[in-house]
Nucleic acid binder design. Structure first.
Lengths: 360, 360
DNA sequence: CTGAAAGCGCTAACAC
DNA sequence: GTGTTAGCGCTTTCAG
């Protein structure tokens, strides 16, 4: 049984290899650097010896001299939110293939926590990907001054950004809802510190203008199922026939909350989400939502970060924008399906005993 | 606009502080170590100077001498699986409060990937938490020889483990199903490399024995919604009235797959999952499942790891076992509700147009 | 192409 | 308590 009281095994060092291979330590070092600037014959011998001794270059020592740790930080707003899973995967993959290790930081939707965690990791990483950061622009810029930073899902001038085409997504939602006969859309707002939240609302305002659809906003609510349930209560007091939620979790919460109060989705109200998380496909009714290329987001941001770390100037011009698409499921339907029923959509104000009668 | 071509700002070093405060570097060092073994007056002065100079101790350099990086690795089987979210949170929290940073590694359900990633991180971390590792026992033992390791959701002799009370959970499921009149339970198996998978099956065998319930197993399938859907097809060929799935994702996939084929849950078949992920509460019908204290798992494992890193011998006796509880929702029901209907549960072999008629 | 020497920023022995 | 002296394992000048 291993005893970990004392520091772990001393591994073979560069000196051991050097001695064994009859060369100087610096030659061993050179044999392991990128363009192996060593006589290919001795290089081979060195590699053999290293293999035999189980030598592994010590990243810490290397980092101390090169000031490159080969680690990047990936900060996400909330690990509990499934959207980040694919983003993390994309980032990991890109990092891996660039010989980089990823340190994941979960900000738990807290500005304060996020800053603290980044501050701690700062000196240990070569760069940072900020996915859906809740920090202020100025805080982000401050970090960006000390380390390469790429921001995901947010546009900040002077910092390289990767975003999805929110305006286009919202526009598609508005068109879709319009075609179904809705002339009024309620936006259920997420965290105010969230950049896409503001962007989506503004895009909706604009789309409403062009398509002659009235819009309004309620909230903010927490971007969770629970937040959506709370929104349902408020929505119940100020009825609507079509709702766009900040994200899928909120949309799912909305459906649940409304059902509980006897409101039928999509019979009484159509609901649209954002993100296309896996759960969007398993709720009843299936959630109409705007899908983003999550994996690509993580991967693009990370690749961009790596090029910056390697010396590029991070083209800070326009943010890189990734396409989205509208996924239509069952949570959206034509308004007032039965023509004779021109009443308010919220006719049944009393909870029905069983909300399962939505055969429509 | 910052130029990252050259290494980032040289930060103030211990020497700068020493010079400014008129003390030796080692004194500065001492002033920053745990029991600050320095004249409290000069300690204060040093701290002031450090503050003014924006001095931050360089963790890399520190690690080089102490061989303690203050980082641990947390390896999870699949970041896409929501169970890990809370585990990660628990681990992060525990790590944080122990002044440790967590490096998250997503193994993507791949033995190979897992090993590779750990090998890369190995020399950079002081210890490892292996959550639901897919590696062989011997591989794990090998790592455990080089670094402190705590294994989560798996029992391996000679390595400290934290597990949940799978046998008890399964037992409760069997009892519950038995009370509902089921005399036969089908276990839908997950990954064979998964320890809890085998454990749960064996526990079911045993419980079946005692409670006089017949059991059988199908699979293995991938532990995802898709895997569950595939299992549904196989299940359709060999009907059952009660099913225990390896995890919630599979259970949800099962429900979907069965519904699609015209089989009603829980009317025709009762389904139970494992884990109580958030989605278990939002599917229709709500999923009966075995809940584990996810956050506590992550936190316990990590705290244990930290004590080992600090020199304890990792009491390798029995694994630490955490309690579970059965969460009963709508996916389980009494067998053959209408007494006159003593037919096979799979009477409707043709897909029904609408599976919503489950008012039970 | 290779060796020698210096040092990254910090801590750990030792002395005083 | 505090200063002095060596390094941790590697890279990087600078010579040859």
């Amino acid at each position: 049984m291993p005893d970990h009281t004392s520091p772990p095994d001393k591994r073979a060092t560069i000196y051991d290899v050097a001695a064994e291979a009859n060369v100087s330590p610096s030659t061993v070092s050179r044999a392991f650097s990128k363009p192996s600037r060593v006589n290919s014959e001795t290089a081979e011998r060195i590699r053999q010896v290293a293999e035999r001794l189980g030598y592994r270059t010590n990243p810490l020592a290397r980092a101390l001299t090169t000031s490159r740790t080969h680690m990047i930080a990936l900060v996400i707003a909330d690990i509990t939110n499934p959207v980040y899973a694919e983003i993390v995967r994309g980032a990991q993959e890109a990092a891996m293939s660039g010989e980089y290790t990823t340190v994941l930081i979960d900000a738990q939707e807290s500005d304060r926590l996020e800053r603290a965690a980044i501050e701690r990791a700062m000196s240990t990483v070569d760069g940072i990907v900020l996915a859906s950061s809740r920090m202020s622009d100025s805080a982000i810029r401050m970090f960006a001054k000390q380390r390469p930073v790429v921001v995901l899902n947010r546009a900040i001038s002077d910092v390289p950004c990767v975003v999805t085409d929110n305006p286009r997504g919202v526009r598609r939602v508005a068109e879709h809802l319009g075609e179904l006969g809705h002339d009024h859309i309620t936006y259920v707002s997420g965290p105010q510190a969230s950049w896409p939240n503001g962007t989506r609302w503004r895009a909706l305002l604009e789309a409403g203008m062009e398509l002659e659809i009235k819009v309004r906003q309620i909230g903010p609510f927490s971007p969770t199922i629970e937040g959506g349930e709370r929104a349902a209560v408020e929505l119940f007091a100020r009825p609507a026939t079509a709702v766009l939620a900040f994200n899928d979790q909120m949309a799912i919460g909305l459906i649940r909350g409304l059902n509980r109060m006897g409101v039928d989705v999509p019979g009484d109200v159509s609901i649209v989400g954002f993100d296309n998380i896996p759960a969007a496909d398993i709720v009843t009714p299936g959630l109409t939502t705007v899908a983003a290329p999550l994996y690509a987001e993580g991967s693009a941001a990370t690749r961009h970060l790596l090029t910056m770390i390697r010396g590029a100037h991070g083209h800070t011009g326009r943010p890189m924008v990734l396409p989205v698409r509208l996924v239509i499921r069952r949570s959206t339907a034509t308004r007032n399906p039965s023509p004779g029923r021109a009443r308010s959509p919220w006719v049944r104000q009393r909870p029905r005993p069983n909300p399962a009668a939505r055969l429509s």
